[in-house]
Design a protein around this nucleic acid. Sequence first.
DNA 1: CGGGTCTTTGAAGATAGTCAATTTAGGTGG
DNA 2: CCACCTAAATTGACTATCTTCAAAGACCCG
Lengths: 249, 249
Amino acid sequence: MTDQTTIQLHALKLSCSNCSLRELCLPVGLNREEMTQLDAVIRQSRRIKRGEYLFRSGEGFKSMFAVRTGFFKTCVSSQDGREQVTGFLMSGELMGLDGISSNIHGCDAIALEDSEVCELPFGRIESLGRDIPSLQHHFFRLMSREIVRDQNVMLLLGNMKAEERLAAFLLNLSQRLAIRGFAANDFILRMSREEIGSFLGLKLETVSRTLSKFQQQGWIRVDHKHIQLVKPEELKALISGCVHSNAAE
Amino acid sequence: MTDQTTIQLHALKLSCSNCSLRELCLPVGLNREEMTQLDAVIRQSRRIKRGEYLFRSGEGFKSMFAVRTGFFKTCVSSQDGREQVTGFLMSGELMGLDGISSNIHGCDAIALEDSEVCELPFGRIESLGRDIPSLQHHFFRLMSREIVRDQNVMLLLGNMKAEERLAAFLLNLSQRLAIRGFAANDFILRMSREEIGSFLGLKLETVSRTLSKFQQQGWIRVDHKHIQLVKPEELKALISGCVHSNAAE
DNA sequence: CGGGTCTTTGAAGATAGTCAATTTAGGTGG
DNA sequence: CCACCTAAATTGACTATCTTCAAAGACCCG
């Protein structure tokens, strides 16, 4: 019995059914039985240390990954070494959707802090979707949401000035942290100024200068990676009219 | 008999089975019977005149649309009127995938010339996908391809200079036209300088100047909307190292 | 043939990039 | 625990690129 209990506990620990992220992640809207079927398909959580690659562009694609704990960036990089960060991902968010199109990963995924991910084998999710329409439907929604997110980043990169980009970035992080139960106006940046710059189409010096400017105006407090939003409404005013509401996911 | 023939011809005219775009569009990889099932779901081709909206951001989402003939742009626009063109679409390409996430269209789709589209009701494609795994799979691939395309646009907007952006844009159009059997190095632009600029994150004057510069260097010939690529290899050299190969779809 | 839109081109101005120097932080090993 | 060392961040001065403003020219459609 003790053995069995241990096994059960272990299983529970790794299951979607009991995951605190299930309302943010893939299992949204599944009933108990469907959740169990999904559990059978999700591979046991895997640990990735800070700086490690979860997957690389060009590798064969078999699975997507959901962030369980930690923080990732995804980037596409060109032959000559230029790198574009295409996203920052936090718990409950999915990586690797771009690999479906060609069966080859189209970007790198790198942990920005020690992290855990769940592996979602695409083929099995795909076939399970046929049995569980609500799973299929939600997966389509997640892919579509990624497209919407990317389009909003395009709007940001194509139309916005440095200050607007940074304001949108900070507010977006704030919002996503709030959804996860963290403080919306007091957080730690997991990425460097250079990585922020790469994502926003700016140089790291511009990011640094713009943060300093926001601080001088009393809108935020910056202590290295520790950011406090003192007057988020001023940041919102900066971008009012630029973006519908959810700048980037 | 004549009547029946007429009906058959009419049916054929509107069916995926006989569409010259079937290898570019949704029906890729379907057998004869599956194609017939898909035909039953696709709504009859609809004509959109130049300048008309196919759908607008904020409208309820029910269907995606495939370009049958003609040319479209999609754009997201902000409250204050700023507009970001997020893509240009030619025959066989799908619009509206961003609507799945919220059941509301996330962008406008506007015809840049008189066009015809096929309507793909999402709910019926979704359920048909459960019966036809290869349809489901291909639809996932198409959504994923859109994500890859968007990421490459992000790379373009975040990292490239005006000349590189325009070179990538011209080569991308060229490649997509070639796939469709048109001349790769001699084509008509369907969009204005301003629309090109909006897509590339540049002002229309910059687009115009850069085209003139390319012409001065003998790389292209520009006669208003008529573009000839004289030395496409020079354009490729400009962006070598910036992008993997397929800058934007 | 004429009004309006689109395009081209020039000149001046602004934003962000580059280069460089200094400071600070965080990790490593004595 | 401290000192060191490397990497990251800040800040300044200068420059390049792109934008803005402006004017003139070309085309298209009715």
